[in-house]
Design a binder for these strands. Structure first.
Length: 231
DNA sequence: GCGACAG
DNA sequence: ATCTTGTCGC
């Protein structure tokens, strides 16, 4: 089993990580609509951890956006590259996620991350970070509202309410299943918020969470168990 | 100062 | 994220 190296110069403390966010934030593109929902490929990304052995396993699963069928899967194993600090999640998983993406031989299309993009203390969460580093369109779909506030959206699938940081709309609480807790959608890079929500609805014909996330989640858990077995 | 806080 | 069985319900 190959273990991905943490890149030289990777931030070693919180202030260094925040400086990297500030620099990369300048490269964020917000004036593009992004690819249409249901067109081309969509790629789900997720990671699983074994803090005991300091391992992180990333999975990238490419789906055909129209049929939601799996087109290709890739995984990578790395060392945990940063402690979990709210607001600095990206530094914990990005080297391994990039390695998994690099192993794909097909176009990933839109990147769908487990977490946030612009809905972030400094408006640069995991989805934005990954989008800027790859140059691709990306969105974040999170299971929890983090520190943000929102009013309950209507109970029908597709209903939404703004996710607010003070008075600023940083994302949306979007109902993907009638009567079920909403998911929290935000823009990553090179996509509009309305389009990010349209993609999220296309990816949730049956469950609360996007098919991309569900596939990537199960794959990285399986890959983690295999990695532990080889050890 | 204390608590909350994506995964 | 992760520790973790059965169980209630469609």
């Amino acid at each position: 089993m190959t273990i991905i190296e943490i890149p030289a110069g990777w931030p070693v403390d919180e202030s260094a990580a925040r400086a990297v966010q500030q620099e990369l934030r300048g490269r964020l593109v917000r004036d593009e609509e992004g690819p249409g929902a249901g067109e081309g490929h969509v790629t789900g990304l997720d990671v699983a951890y074994d803090d005991e052995r300091d391992l992180v396993v990333a999975a990238a699963v490419v789906l055909d956006a129209r049929t939601l069928r799996v087109v290709q899967e890739a995984t990578a194993v790395g060392r945990v590259s940063f402690p979990y600090v709210p607001g600095l999640l990206a530094f914990r998983e990005i080297p391994t996620v990039l390695a998994a993406l690099d192993r794909l031989t097909v176009d990933p299309g839109l990147l769908v991350c487990d977490g946030y993009g612009l809905a972030h203390p400094r408006r640069f969460g995991l989805a934005s970070h990954l989008g800027v580093l790859t140059g691709r369109s990306s969105i974040g779909v999170a299971k929890n509202p983090f520190t943000f506030t929102y009013e309950q959206p209507g109970s029908a699938r597709g209903d939404f309410a703004p996710l607010l940081a003070g008075g600023e709309e940083v994302g949306r609480a979007l109902r993907t299943r009638a009567g079920v807790k909403p998911v929290f959608v935000s823009v990553g890079h090179r996509v509009s918020l309305a389009n990010a929500c349209a993609h999220t609805l296309h990816l949730t014909p049956r469950y609360r969470l996007p098919e991309t996330t569900r596939h990537a989640d199960s794959l990285c858990r399986r890959a983690l168990n295999e990695a532990l077995g080889e050890e």
